[in-house]
Design a protein around this nucleic acid. Structure first.
Length: 321
DNA sequence: ACCCAGGTGCTGC
DNA sequence: GCAGCACATGGG
């Protein structure tokens, strides 16, 4: 079991940040979380300010430490933001303990193809349905009577975590189902994208992984864009959440509305008698990208983290309405 | 009935 | 390059 602090790793904020679709609050428990990645699963719990990763040191070192991005100094990034940028200061403060996870490559490719024109709860359902149809079933092996607690103290953590679960599909398993194999999962027109991209992933996997290993993100981007259903925005998400490209800055509808509302030119509101009201000018996607470069270009090396701060802040404040 | 959702592909200019 | 449209499906 590994211990850390909420200010270093905040499971609530990460769970709701929109970067991961297979992280859940376990069985309605407010402070127990399940993280699924490929064919692995991690239980995370919080007690006050203490956060626990329920795995052995070996498993942590071999996989989760990098996955959870525990080696990066987020405090330094936070200290670099412009104090005059009120919105970013607020978003950064609200994002304390938020980290950019290093998720599985194929899982991110499929998940973000699914994500287009869908809301996050709906994305989660589709991803889960894919796992149930194409993933490997994992039977929970834990003993019902508290293992390793012969002293009777500290009951083992298992509330809601003792159910069987499915791993994320391999590209081979999806490809093997054929183009018709994806029907009935509410994927809509994305069925074809997922099937064709699964097939293509098998072909280009080596080149793609080599480019990721070399941090040649230009090549990574080119390969991703050659896959059906992956455009600029989805490619940016994949690079940020699976390839370690912390400079990747996905521009989606939420970012566009932030750039329009918080960083756009205002025009006088002709409908306001006192002329005090000003309305944000309409912003196109390409104009929003330009503004992003102008406003956030200075955060070289971690602009993708800045994106997550403002994105997560935006969707969290939207909920309270 | 209408509008929007962590967009992309395709066409036509 | 950029605007305009179709594309499934679910939720307000």
């Amino acid at each position: 079991m590994i211990k850390t602090d909420v200010d270093l790793f905040n499971p609530d904020r990460i769970c709701d940040s929109g970067q991961i679709f297979r992280m859940y609050r376990a069985g309605g428990e407010a402070s127990v979380f399940l993280i699924y990645s490929g064919d692995k699963r991690l239980v995370v719990s919080r007690e006050g300010r203490e956060v626990f990763f329920h795995c052995g040191d070996d498993e942590y070192e071999a996989y989760w430490r990098h996955y959870l991005d525990m080696d990066r100094d987020y405090g330094y990034f936070a200290s670099q933001i412009d104090p005059k940028d009120d919105f970013l200061v607020r978003a950064c403060a609200a994002g304390k303990g938020l980290r950019i996870l290093n998720q599985d490559l194929f899982e991110m490719i499929v998940s973000f193809i699914v994500s287009q024109q869908k809301q996050i709860p709906s994305i989660r359902k589709c991803v889960e349905a894919l796992c149930e149809r194409f993933g490997t079933l994992h039977e929970d092996k834990s003993e019902p009577d508290g293992q390793g607690t012969s002293d009777g103290r500290q009951a083992p953590l298992r509330m809601g975590t003792d159910k069987s679960w499915y791993g994320f599909p391999t590209p081979q398993s999806i490809a093997a189902g054929g183009p018709e194999g994806l029907k009935g999962l509410s994927l809509g027109y994305r069925e074809r994208y997922i099937y064709e991209t699964s097939c293509r992933f098998i072909e280009v996997e080596k080149d793609l992984r080599d480019a990721v290993a070399e941090k040649d993100f230009e090549t990574v981007g080119k390969i991703l864009l050659s896959m059906t259903g992956i455009g600029e925005k989805v490619a940016e998400c994949i690079k940020l959440f699976a390839c370690g490209d912390l400079d990747s800055f996905p521009v989606d509808t939420h970012i566009i509305s932030i750039m329009e509302r918080e960083y756009g030119e205002k025009e006088a509101n002709v409908h306001s008698k006192q002329m005090q009201g000003s309305l944000p000018k309409k912003m196109t996607p390409s104009r929003a990208r330009e503004r992003v470069r102008e406003v956030f270009g200075k955060y070289k090396g971690f602009s993708g983290l800045v994106q997550q701060w403002i994105f997560a802040y935006e969707i969290s404040t939207q909920k309270r309405r």
